[in-house]
């Protein structure tokens, strides 16, 4: 399953990668921030079709970590926490990162089982295959495996 992306130019996008028991989420972007936003979209699409989720309510998220890898895990886990405790799904993310501090906004709506048809809840973002890197063409990649 893929979001819109291009290998030639550093356009934002996302994809899933294989793990036999669970699923890998990978975001791409011209900056680390955009890659983090896309990784979050990849994670939500493990649960539901993104196009069914209306972005009508916004939640602020803040995280801080010693490096970019842990910051990604913290960001995804913060989203998992907000989804679980607010009973919401999100379909739009905005991220700014300064010196390993992340400020994010997640927009979405309350879970509507009939419309969202959620497949499985996410238990957490793992440290497996956790990687935030910039490729030689300038594109950022942010990925990890999520436990379903």
């Amino acid at each position: 399953m893929n979001g819109v992306r291009s290998a030639a130019r550093p356009m934002p996008g996302w994809e899933h990668f294989a793990h036999v028991a669970d699923i890998g989420v990978r975001g791409f972007g011209p900056s680390m921030e955009r890659a983090f936003e896309q990784a979050a979209l990849a994670m939500i699409s493990v649960i539901s079709d993104l196009s069914t989720i209306r972005a009508c309510e916004t939640v602020d998220i803040a995280c801080r970590a010693p490096d970019a890898d842990f910051l990604l895990a913290d960001w995804l886990n913060a989203i998992v926490f907000e989804m679980a405790t607010r009973n919401m799904l999100f379909s739009r993310f905005e991220v700014t990162i300064t010196e390993n501090r992340l400020r994010g906004r997640a927009s979405g709506e309350a879970v509507d089982v009939a419309r969202h048809k959620p497949a499985a809840e996410i238990k957490g973002a793992t440290l497996s295959e956790l990687k935030v890197t910039q490729t030689s063409d300038g594109r950022w990649i942010a990925q990890c495996i999520v436990d379903v």
Binding site: P66, F70, A73, D74, N77, V80, F81, A84, T85, K123, G124, A125, T126, L127, D147
Partner: peptide
Amino acid sequence: RGLGHQIGTEFLREMAM
């Protein structure tokens, strides 16, 4: 349920660091 998932998440991070 969520309690176990959250404990796992938090200690995994702390122990890894």
